[in-house]
Computed example of a mutant assay.
Amino acid sequence: MHGSPNGSSRATTDAQVTGIDGARFRSVLGRFATGVVAITAIDPATGGPTGLAANSFTSVSLEPPLVAFCVAHTSTTWPRLRGARRICINILSEPQLRICKQLALKGGDKFADIGWTESPSGSPVIDGALAWLDCEIENTHVAGDHVIVVARVHHLDQHHDGDPLLFYRGTYGRFSG
């Protein structure tokens, strides 16, 4: 709510305040290519694997080793991941588009036909991922329609060689060379 000079209040949208249209914002930011990660854990309620796909992942600090990713408030998987003791961030390879799309779906068995092994803390390391980071959630920060999650890395390793799965201009792709 923003007050007017005469003391009344009126509801305004962020687009009205900033002049930025959401579709245009998405289109412009879509010109920044990102990698894709799968954030996985063992669901404390079921004892089974759970996960989601994200393209908002970055390193934060070397000392201590911290990374961050963003999750939409609408995610139905995030509460299960947040409740886990540890999570695993899997850096997806180009051939893993099917896995990415499967983890992005709402509901169902997200791990059907996805091979995985356990990280040192027991979280799922997805077969064929380029690398993985075994983490503990350190902090969360509400930011607009997302939550920024900062996680401390406890174990990590390169898993496979290959090209990364990329997200660019609203679609998935790979390097051409």
Rank of each mutant, 00 (worst) to 15 (best):
61 S>C: 15
144 G>Y: 12
175 F>G: 02
54 A>C: 06
5 P>D: 04
11 A>T: 15
44 P>M: 08
118 E>G: 07
36 V>C: 02
20 I>C: 11
138 E>L: 15
59 S>T: 01
67 V>G: 07
119 S>I: 02
105 L>T: 10
38 A>G: 08
102 Q>T: 06
66 L>P: 11
44 P>Q: 09
82 R>A: 06
142 V>F: 12
11 A>P: 06
152 R>E: 05
109 D>P: 04
125 V>T: 03
57 F>P: 01
57 F>S: 02
3 G>W: 04
142 V>I: 09
60 V>I: 11
18 T>S: 15
116 W>T: 07
15 A>T: 14
116 W>Q: 01
44 P>C: 01
73 H>Y: 11
40 T>D: 00
64 P>R: 01
38 A>W: 00
129 A>M: 09
77 T>M: 13
20 I>D: 05
44 P>F: 00
8 S>K: 14
58 T>S: 10
10 R>M: 09
57 F>R: 06
5 P>A: 12
32 F>Y: 12
23 A>P: 03
149 V>R: 09
7 G>R: 10
30 G>L: 14
145 D>Y: 06
11 A>H: 13
156 L>V: 14
13 T>I: 14
86 R>P: 07
55 N>Y: 01
51 G>I: 08
61 S>W: 04
154 H>C: 06
9 S>A: 05
103 L>Y: 14
167 F>H: 10
94 E>N: 09
87 I>Q: 07
139 N>S: 10
124 P>N: 05
66 L>E: 11
31 R>V: 04
92 L>T: 09
163 D>V: 00
84 A>M: 09
5 P>G: 05
111 F>Y: 03
160 H>P: 04
158 Q>W: 07
171 T>H: 07
121 S>L: 00
7 G>H: 12
132 W>G: 10
162 G>I: 06
67 V>L: 15
108 G>S: 05
14 D>G: 11
104 A>I: 03
35 G>N: 02
